[in-house]
Design a protein around this nucleic acid. Structure first.
Lengths: 212, 212
DNA sequence: TCTCGTTACAAACAGGTGTTTAAAACACAT
DNA sequence: ATGTGTTTTAAACACCTGTTTGTAACGAGA
C-alpha cells in the first residue's frame, strides 16, 4: 500500500528530487539527507538503489540527457547553413535556458563545466562532442571550407560562448540589472540576435581569410 | 625570531596560501586546515586574524582585485571605438587567462560567477559594473547611439560571453581537444579574433537597426 | 501458512568541517 | 625584572557529511 503523496516508485522519487536539487545547488552542495527528505524516503535509500551518491548523479545525468535530446534535438541537417545556424542556436538556447523539466540537463551541464565531477568526461563525449561537431559543420559551410582550421574552431567557440554566457554568468548578469531571457519568445529573440551577430562576424572573418 | 621559510607575517602567509587554494578549488572546497597547512600556521590563525573563513575570502578578493586593476587597467579612454574595443578585449582576456599571480582575480571571479558566495554582490559592484560600463560606452560609440538600447546590451553580452567562455568552460574545451590560450601571444591572437568577429557582428546589427 | 528475496527503516559509524577555548609564548614599554 | 597587550598553540566542540549495519516489514510462490 502506498501513500497517495508518494505514488511513484522509490528510485523515481529520488531521481526527481535529486535532479532538482543538483540542478539548483550543484553536486557537492546537495546532501543525501536533503534529497531523501524531499523525496520522502529513508536516508539509506540512495545507497541501496544507486550504490553511491555519484551513482545517483550519473543516473540522473543520463536520464536528463536522454530527455533533453528528445525535446531539443541537435543533429546535422541539410539546407542553407545560415538557416542551420539559426536552428542550432535556437535549440541550444532552449536546452540551456528553457524552464521545463528537461532544462535540468542544461543546468546540470553548466554546473559540471564550472565544477567537473568524475562523471564529466563521459558526458562530454556523449553530449558536448556531437553538438560541437554539428556546429563545426555549419561553420565550415558558412566559411566555404572543408577542414577545421583555427578560424573555424575560433568561430565555433565564439558562438558557443555567446550562448553559454547567459547560463554560466547568470548571477552577474542579474546583479547588473539585465533581465535573463526565460520565456519562449525572449529566448527566441536572443537566438535571433546571436545568429545575426555571428553570421556577420563570420562574413568578416571569411573576408580576412580570403584576403590572406 | 622567525623561521627562514616563513619570513612573512602570518596574515600575509595565510592570504598567499589561501589565494592559491581558493583560485584552484573554489571557496567551499578549500578547508581552513588545508590553508593553514600550506601556510605553516596554526588552525586557529584564520579565525583570529580574519574573524571568519568568509572574512579571509573577502580580504583576498579585495587584494586580488586591487592587484589586477593595477596590472590590467580597464578604463574609459578616447580614440576610435574600434581601437578601444581591441584594447578592452585584450585587457579582459589577460585578466582572466593570464598566468601570473594577479590572475587569481580572474579565477576567483569565474569561480564566484559559477558558485556565488555572500561576498559576491559587493564584488560585482566594484569590479564587474565599471568594466561593463566601459564596454557599454565602446559599443554605443560603435553603434552610433547614445543610449543603452536592447541591441547595445545584447552586443556587450555577446562580447563578454566570447571572452569568458574560455574561462568558464575550460574543462569542456580541453576535453574536446582544443588548446586553451595561455601564453601572451596566444591570448593576443584570441583577442584579435574576438575583436574582429565582434566588430563585424556589430556592423551587421547596426545595419539592421538603421534599416528598421 | 511458511519461506525467501526484496525493500524500508532507525541507528550508528568514521571522517571532515568551521569555530572556540584556555593556556602558553612572545614582544615591548615601564 | 615586571606587567601588559598581542599572538600562537593544542585541544576540544558541535555539527554535518556519505556510508554501513542489523532488523523489521513487505510481497509473492510453494
Amino acid at each position: 500500500m502506498m501513500n497517495p503523496l508518494t505514488t511513484n516508485a522509490t528510485p523515481d522519487r529520488i531521481m526527481d528530487a535529486a535532479g532538482e536539487l543538483f540542478a539548483e545547488n550543484g553536486f557537492r552542495q546537495t546532501s543525501i539527507r536533503d534529497i531523501c527528505a524531499h523525496a520522502n524516503v529513508n536516508i539509506a535509500a540512495v545507497n541501496y538503489h544507486f550504490r553511491d551518491k555519484e551513482g545517483l548523479y550519473e543516473a540522473i545525468l543520463q536520464r536528463s540527457f536522454d530527455k533533453c535530446v528528445n525535446c531539443y534535438p541537435i543533429v546535422a541537417t541539410d539546407g542553407p547553413p545560415e538557416e542551420r545556424l539559426a536552428i542550432f542556436v535556437r535549440m541550444f538556447l532552449l536546452r540551456i535556458l528553457g524552464s521545463g523539466q528537461p532544462a535540468w540537463h542544461g543546468k546540470l551541464m553548466a554546473a559540471e563545466m564550472a565544477n567537473p565531477t568524475a562523471a564529466f568526461s563521459k558526458l562530454v563525449e556523449q553530449a558536448a562532442r556531437p553538438t560541437h561537431n554539428v556546429l563545426l559543420g555549419i561553420v565550415r559551410d558558412l566559411m566555404h571550407t572543408t577542414e577545421n582550421t583555427y578560424q573555424v574552431e575560433a568561430v565555433a567557440l565564439s558562438i558557443m560562448g555567446q550562448c553559454l554566457f547567459y547560463k554560466h554568468s547568470r548571477p552577474v548578469i542579474e546583479l547588473l540589472g539585465i533581465p535573463i531571457p526565460v520565456t519562449q519568445s525572449e529566448i527566441e529573440s536572443l537566438a535571433e540576435h546571436i545568429t545575426q551577430f555571428s553570421l556577420d562576424g563570420i562574413s568578416g572573418v571569411r573576408a580576412v581569410v580570403a584576403h590572406a
